[in-house]
Structure formats: C-alpha cells, structure tokens
Nucleic acid binder design. Structure first.
Lengths: 195, 195
DNA sequence: GTCTATACAATGATAGAC
DNA sequence: GTCTATCATTGTATAGAC
C-alpha cells in the first residue's frame, strides 16, 4: 500500500492482469468485459492495461493463450501423477479438466476462443491450443483416435452444461442427464444455487 | 423499392430482423454485432430495430429462441421423415444437425446462448431450449439416456470444430480428428478455405 | 512502471414526425 | 409501421507527466 513499493516487474504485472482478465471474462462474458474492470481487478489503471496489451481483443488473445497453456500443464501434471488410487489416465485427465473448468473464467475464456475461430487473430491461437491438446492425448496419454475424440466430446458436453449454468434440481431431464454424465458425484460447480 | 409499399406487417418484419440478426451474430460474433448492422441486413433503420426489441441483449434472446425453435422443428422433421435410405433416427438427426449448424449464424447464436447461461435473462431461454432437445431425444426419438448423452456430446464436439473454423488440411492431427469424427464425407462446412 | 487527464469513436437508445 | 435527427453513455485509446 505504500507509495513507491507498488512498482513491480512488468512480467509479474502482466500475469496479474491476465489472471484478472480471466476472472472478468468469466464474470461478464467477453462482450461486457471492459479493460477498466480488468484494471480494477489487477489493482492498476485502465490505460496501463491498454499500454501493456494494446487492445481488448489482444488482451483476450493473450488471456486465451495463457489459459490454454495452463490447461496443457494441468493435463501433463495429471498424467505424470502416480495413479495411487488406481485411476486410469482417462479418469485422471477428466477429473483435472473438471476442476479447471469449474472456474467459470477458464471455461468462458476457452469457449469464446473456440467459437471465434473464424477471427483471423483469435483463430490460430484457439486452433493451436485445441489441437495441441489432441496431440497430447494421442502421443503422451496414449489414446487411440477414437478415445481422444470421445474424451474431447465428453469435455465439450461438460463445457456446455457448466456454461448453461445447469442446476441438478432444475427438473427431471436435467437430473437424468447430469446423473448419466457424472454418475454419483456431480461436481461442486453444479451445486451452488444462490442465484 | 417504391415508397409506401415497403410497409409490411410487424410480425413479418420481426422475422426479417431475426433472420438478419442470426446472420450478423454469426458474422461478427455477439460482441461486435451491432443493432445497426442488423438493421442494414433487414433493410430498415437502426432505431426501428430498437423499437421492436428494446435492447441488443433482448434482440439476442429472441434470436436465440427463434433459433432453438428452428432446431427443434428441424429435428422433428428429420424424425418424421420416412427413412427411405434405411438410416437410423440417430443418423438422420445427426445429418440434420450438421446441416443446420453449417450456418455459422445458427452455430454462434446457439453457442453464445449456451455459454451465457449464468446471465439471468439468457439462461432460462438457453437451458429451456437445450433440455427441450434432450426431452425430445428421449421421448420422441426413443433414445436411452446414454444414447441421448452421447448424441449431445458428439454435437458439442462438432460445434467446437466448426466454431474453431478447422480446415481438413491444417495438419495431421486435424485430419485425423476430422476423419475420426465424420468418417469419409467431411461436411462442406469444413471445405471452404478462402481465408 | 504507472498515473491523470482527456480525446474520440461507437453505439445503444430517445423524441417526435410522417 | 417506419424514418430522421440527435443525445447520452460508455469504453477504448492517446498524450504526457512523474
């Protein structure tokens, strides 16, 4: 809080901004996210955010890259993890994914990237990250094409269910689909119903 | 083109606007879509769009409802269709879906709805439509919960591949995943590569 | 490395006429 | 049912100092 000591290295600040951006994109969605809210989140001024990232879209693109990198790291960590509980690689990866996208910021960042693939600036980053995951599944996790495709499809359904903000108690169909997707233990992401 | 004859009934105009909105949301994404572009698309003035729909978000919500209704109709038509070629209900529904979301406007409208489920105004419409599809699969198409879940998961993966604007020629991983997902005939949505 | 002040553009939205 | 004119707001982005 003291005057001059708030100066911190650019790279550190950059990460703070990216983290704040993930939060803001998740809370308001890309459209309603503003560089100002991101700045507030990072505890700095709005012009400084612009200074570092240029434009809102550029900020998003770097946020997406940041998030995709995090996803890859998470997957690799889950793979490396000794399967103490005798879980398959598939199960460990699934659990890791679920926990990551339980953060709505991470989820919306990924989803916005995935759907804006036609944007000349966003597309390459989004596709690059997505297929890097695919390659990882094939080469590092040892999945067959079939397994990889199925794993991704399940992931995309989970994305949708979280994105939709589905509640287990909504109705019979909802309960059935959630049960069928997650079995007994529905993730905590679906629990809160504070509205 | 003549002066006064351009007055048409409100409901008709409304549909024209909604159709234009689908196109605009698909072309620019929700964030960059403007009521003005929609107005241009419908051949009317921007204030008239606002007059009819109130706000951009409200326009989106009605566009989403419109699109979900169209999706349901398309599915029901595919079910009713005599399976002349001996295709399963699953195959017919899949083909119908693929054709529909080949229209990027339809795809982005649905996806934006699905990921903004936490929005108090969008959420109910998005969830309502999604689970109406689920119920349709279970009750009208006769799918088991397992089949329905799997069908939806495949659909969500397809959404992602189209959203990402994936091209078959991008690289080996891409080609493999597309082949694994679509078999021999990859939809035309993936063909164009004009950039 | 970071801020204040501010310019500027865009766009959503209103008022009121025809 | 539809337009023209116009306003108000917001939010990105710049300039320049510290």
């Amino acid at each position: 809080m003291n005057a001059k000591s708030d100066r911190i290295p650019a790279d550190e600040r950059r990460v703070q901004i990216l983290d704040a951006a993930v939060e803001v994109f998740g809370r308001y969605g890309y459209a309603a996210a503003t560089t100002d809210r991101v700045a507030k989140g990072a505890g700095i001024s709005q012009p400084y955010v612009v200074r570092m990232f240029g434009t809102k879209e550029q900020l998003f693109i770097e946020t997406l890259g940041h998030t995709l990198a995090r996803l890859l790291r998470t997957f690799r960590a889950a793979l490396a993890e000794a399967d103490a509980e005798g879980l398959s690689a598939e199960a460990r990866l699934g659990a890791a994914y679920l926990e990551l996208v339980g953060d709505r910021g991470v989820l919306l960042t990924l989803l916005h990237g995935f759907m804006m693939g036609a944007d000349p600036a966003i597309g390459p980053v989004a596709r690059g990250g997505f297929f890097e995951v695919y390659r990882m599944l094939r080469q590092e996790a040892g999945f067959t094409p079939e397994q990889a495709r199925s794993f991704l499809a399940e992931g995309m359904l989970i994305n949708t269910l979280i994105g939709l903000d589905v509640r287990p108690t909504d109705d019979l169909a909802t309960a059935e689909l959630l049960a069928c997707t997650f079995g007994d233990d529905v993730p905590e992401s679906f629990e809160r119903s504070i509205a």
